[in-house]
């Protein structure tokens, strides 16, 4: 009853499709999607921690899964989502101060987030591979 009324009277923002797609908009979507990926990806970290706490056998089992090609791909994607969301979060903190909202800065932040997140992901994985020898 109240539900139907609320829906009819509450205004929704203009539909996205009226705007020309820009990189900044794509990055906004990517920030949200990477956040959702990390949300469910936390299951992997929890699984790993619980396995470490229970027995060496459980721990070896999940590490074995992580060591397959699919496992590595998932972890690599998780790392990228993490750095993408982290840099996007820093961008949001800068925006919160009222700075960096201009046309040039917006585009710059979008590019820096892409380049930065890919670079950080690759660097972290290279260090990991080197440490494992």
């Amino acid at each position: 009853m109240a539900d139907a009324k609320m829906r009819s009277e509450r205004p929704l923002s203009p539909h996205l499709s009226v705007y020309r797609l820009s990189l900044v908009m794509v990055m906004s979507g990517a920030h949200r999607i990477s956040g959702a990926v990390l949300y469910f990806g936390m299951l992997l970290l929890v699984w790993w921690l619980v396995a470490a706490s229970t027995s060496p056998r459980d721990f070896d089992f999940i590490n074995g899964l992580f060591d397959t090609w699919i496992g590595r791909l998932v972890l690599f994607g998780f790392t990228w989502a993490l750095f993408h969301h982290l840099l996007g979060g820093i961008r949001h903190l800068i925006w919160d101060t009222g700075r960096g909202l201009g046309k040039y800065e917006r585009e710059l932040f979008a590019r820096l987030t892409i380049i930065g997140s890919i670079s950080l992901t690759v660097v972290v994985w290279l260090i990991g591979i080197m440490l494992r020898g």
């Binding site: 470490a52 070896d60 590490n63 982290l86 949001h92 903190l93 972290v124 990991g128 440490l131 494992r132």
Partner: peptide, 26 residues
């Protein structure tokens, strides 16, 4: 958001250092 930046960075360093290490060391 502010808290996550250093905390996550530190945990990433720890997890990378622990990757491939045996159970006892981890």
């Amino acid at each position: 958001t502010v808290a996550n930046i250093p905390l996550v960075a530190a945990v990433v360093v720890i997890l990378v250092a622990l990757s491939g290490r045996p159970h006892a060391a981890v």
